[in-house]
């Protein structure tokens, strides 16, 4: 009987572990080796060149440029997305003060909730193409709206202007990400007992004070997770940049991100060894970011 149980468990565990080993662990392990070669990716020929790829990486201005863009995304996208999502989520739940009695959301909260979530339903490819149209300098929605509002002087080429293109990308990242976190924070807020908010209200706390003293501390776990997720997205941003920007990565490398630079080296310049070295560098960066975020944001858990 006992014997049979183990066989049962092993039978279930071995196939997935095997698959995981073959398709996840082993490629990862090989990545570290390929990063030390000059493999072109077109034949089985390759030479071991030690740390040369990494030495080149350190000197490669284009790589640092791409990394700087990821850094900028990392600083701005998570902060803005989370701030907006927190604002929307708390307004949806606690923003209404009709008659000053009960704690409730703003009027039409249910409707807004659905609207915010819309972008989440679209695939990143659709989002990118959609925004390409929005940003079109001659027939795009954005310039059109600016005209209608009498702000024609603000018209721009958006994705065609190196000083604006990365900001245009960030705006889309925030736009497409915010809905998910509104829903996430919304669920977390609803898990907080109502009487805490009512007590705060009775004590005369305003909306801002309630948010700072009650909502945010109780949401901290969710916020922390959101930071890690968004941080990883900011370190990547590959798909959106690849589809939406000119070049892609342009104009003039103004939207180049590390993932795209990796891709370019591998698939355009036939430098798989070097591209893999970039991948290894990004692996460690992403890993450190996740660990760091979880460490830094660690706080005493509030029990209720």
């Amino acid at each position: 009987m006992r014997h049979g149980k183990y066989r049962f468990i092993v039978g279930f565990l071995v196939p997935p572990l095997l698959l995981y080993g073959i398709f996840v662990l082993s490629p990862y392990a090989q990545t570290f080796y390929i990063a030390l070669t000059d493999w072109r990716g077109l034949s089985a020929e390759l030479n071991f060149i030690g740390l040369e790829n990494f030495a080149e990486l350190v000197r490669d201005g284009a790589f640092w440029n791409a990394l700087r863009h990821n850094g900028l995304l990392l600083v701005i996208v998570p902060a803005v997305t989370i701030a907006l999502a927190l604002f929307f989520a708390s307004m949806l739940n606690l923003g209404g003060r009709r008659g000053g009695s009960a704690v409730q959301g703003v009027r039409g909260a249910e409707f807004y909730k659905v609207v915010y979530f819309f972008p989440q339903v679209l695939s990143i490819a659709v989002i990118a193409i959609l925004w390409q149209f929005v940003y079109n300098p001659r027939s795009g929605l954005l310039n059109g709206v600016l005209d209608v509002l009498g702000l024609g002087f603000l018209r721009a080429t958006w994705l065609g202007d190196p000083s604006l293109a990365l900001w245009a990308v960030m705006a889309v990242l925030v736009w497409s990400g915010v809905g998910f976190y509104v829903v996430l924070f919304n669920a977390a807020i609803q898990a907080i007992p109502r009487d805490l908010f009512e007590a705060a209200l009775l004590d005369g706390a305003g909306r801002l004070a309630t948010f700072r003293r009650v909502t945010l501390p109780l949401l901290w776990d969710s916020v922390q997770v959101a930071f890690v997720y968004l941080g990883i997205i900011a370190l990547d941003a590959f798909a959106l940049v690849q589809i939406m920007t000119f070049g892609p990565g342009g104009p003039d490398d103004s939207t180049m991100v590390t993932g795209l630079y990796l891709y370019k080296n591998a698939f355009e310049y036939a430098r798989f060894g070097y591209a893999t070295a970039i991948g290894v560098a990004m692996f460690f960066l992403t890993l450190s970011l996740a660990v760091l975020t979880l460490r830094v944001t660690r706080r005493e858990r509030v029990e209720y």
Binding site: P27, Q30, I34, I124, G279
Partner: peptide
Amino acid sequence: RREVLRRAFAAGVLVTPVGGVLASCA
């Protein structure tokens, strides 16, 4: 293709297919 890549969050994962290719062939 992009859809696949999007899901491969970190670009560390991006290079894994390459490794697989090499494993079977190099």
